[in-house]
């Protein structure tokens, strides 16, 4: 509009950037709105869960009825629920330990060693990350049936450790790749055995990544359903307990449990992401 009194050529030359600027501005506005919507979409359900865990009414409808802590006290007096939480802690602790004990050498082997069948080994280990959890669960169920194992929390631990191996290996492998070889070479030159080098040089350097991975695996195990569904015996883990109550109907008690789970896992996750991304100094 400013350029009306100027010649056609210049007008064409300036009008275009102006229109572009308008286009870019509206493009930006559109993107901001959309980004806001995406965040709202992601956090609305979580907010709903937390808000309704304090709502007096039994049904999850609007408007809100009033503030109460009843669902939390109900939760703490529910023996089945507490047993399920205990089971989940037991399973997650041992599954994470196992997956680290197996996964760290696996990541190390994939990064530093060459051996026959390496590609097959990598594909096999990473399989559970791409495949539906149900298939991992069913195939392990087949194995336990063939060898005659009774299903129990221990078989669930083996299942979780196997499914989480893919996560552990990917995370530790990524960290190992960023680790300069020179330190290990120096250690070897100074006469340390490979095992000494591993425990005194490599391991301390990937400590943060290991803790980060452990936390992520812990939350994943704590929330795992598909594998647990097939491998558990009479004992329920927490998600399996929630799952079976959900099928009977919704109670605000679940919201109370959910709120606590979400708060704890957000803390663990933020901490672990920080640990996994921290080392930029080297």
């Amino acid at each position: 509009m400013v350029t009306i009194d100027q010649s056609d050529n210049i007008a064409a030359g300036t009008r275009r950037p102006l229109m572009d600027r308008i286009a870019e501005r509206s493009g930006s506005d559109f993107l901001i709105t959309l980004a806001g919507c995406v965040l709202a979409f992601l956090y609305l359900p979580i907010a709903v869960l937390i808000i309704f865990s304090f709502n007096e009414s039994r049904t999850l409808t609007l408007p809100l009825q009033g503030f109460t802590l009843d669902w939390y006290s109900k939760m703490f007096s529910n023996a089945d629920l507490l047993a399920a939480i205990g089971n989940s802690l037991y399973v997650a602790t041992f599954a994470v330990s196992l997956t680290l004990v197996i996964g760290i050498p696996a990541a190390f082997a994939l990064d530093r060693l060459s051996f026959p069948g390496k590609t097959v080994f990598r594909r096999l280990i990473l399989m559970p990350i791409a495949l539906p959890g149900v298939i991992t669960g069913i195939s392990m169920l087949n194995l336990f049936r063939v060898v005659g194992f009774n299903l129990s929390l221990e078989t669930v631990i083996l299942g979780h450790a196997t499914a989480l191996l893919a996560v552990t290996v990917t995370q530790i492998y990524a960290r190992l790749q960023r680790l300069p070889r020179s330190m290990e070479e120096a250690s070897a030159d100074l006469g340390a055995s490979p095992i000494q080098t591993f425990f005194f040089v490599t391991l301390p350097n990937i400590k943060a990544a290991i803790v980060g991975t452990a936390l992520i695996c812990f939350t994943l195990s704590f929330d795992e359903i598909p594998v647990t569904f097939f491998l558990t015996g009479r004992d329920n883990t927490l998600p399996m307990y929630i799952w079976s109550t959900l099928r009977r109907g919704i109670t605000p008690e679940i919201n109370a449990v959910g709120t606590i789970i979400i708060l704890v896992s957000v803390v663990l996750i933020v901490f672990s992401v920080w640990l996994l991304h921290e080392p930029k100094k080297d």
Partner: peptide
Amino acid sequence: PLWVSYLLRAYT
């Protein structure tokens, strides 16, 4: 949210 309980988020 990716790491926060899948079951609970679906149930909500």
